[in-house]
Amino acid sequence: MELVALFSIGTFAWTHFNGFARYALVLILPAFVMIIWSVFAVPGDPSRGSDGVVAVSGMTRLILEFFVFGAGFIALYYSSSRIYSLTFLLLIVLHYVASLDRIKWLLER
Rank of each mutant, 00 (worst) to 15 (best):
L25G: 14
V53R: 03
A71T: 13
L76P: 13
I74Q: 04
W37F: 07
A24H: 03
L29D: 11
W105A: 03
L3F: 14
D45I: 02
F88S: 07
R61H: 11
I28E: 09
L76M: 06
V4C: 11
E65Y: 06
A31T: 11
D51M: 03
L62D: 08
F20N: 10
D101Q: 09
A98T: 08
L89W: 04
V53S: 11
S8D: 08
L91M: 10
A41L: 13
F73G: 01
F88Q: 01
L90R: 10
E65L: 12
G49H: 13
G58S: 04
A41G: 14
Y78H: 02
F40N: 01
G19K: 02
S99E: 15
E108W: 03
L89S: 10
I83C: 05
F40R: 00
A75T: 09
F17K: 10
L64G: 10
F40M: 01
S57H: 06
R109M: 07
Y96V: 15
T60E: 12
G44I: 06
L106R: 03
G52A: 08
L106M: 02
G10V: 01
R82K: 10
S80H: 15
L89D: 03
P30V: 06
M1N: 15
L100A: 15
R22E: 14
D101Y: 04
L90Q: 13
V54M: 00
A41V: 05
G10N: 02
L100P: 15
D51P: 14
I9L: 04
V53K: 00
F88V: 03
R82Q: 04
I35E: 05
V68E: 09
G70W: 00
F7N: 11
H16D: 11
V54F: 04
T87Q: 00
F32G: 13
Y77G: 09
P30Y: 02
L91H: 04
E2Y: 13
L64Y: 12
L89I: 10
R22M: 05
K104A: 08
T60S: 05
S80C: 09
V56P: 08
Y84H: 06
Y84C: 12
T11A: 15
L6T: 07
F17N: 12
F66W: 09
A5F: 10
I28D: 03
L27A: 11
M59Q: 15
D51Q: 08
L3E: 13
F32T: 14
A13P: 11
F88P: 01
F40S: 00
S99T: 15
I63C: 02
A55N: 14
S50M: 06
L76Y: 05
G44P: 11
D101V: 14
F88A: 08
Y78V: 00
W14Q: 09
N18W: 11
V53L: 06
M34C: 12
F69C: 04
S81M: 07
D101K: 06
S50Q: 15
R61S: 06
F88N: 01
V4A: 12
R82C: 02
W37C: 01
S57W: 13
I83T: 04
F66C: 12
F7H: 14
A55F: 02
I103C: 14
Y77E: 02
V39W: 03
L6P: 00
V26Q: 08
F12Q: 07
R61I: 07
V26R: 04
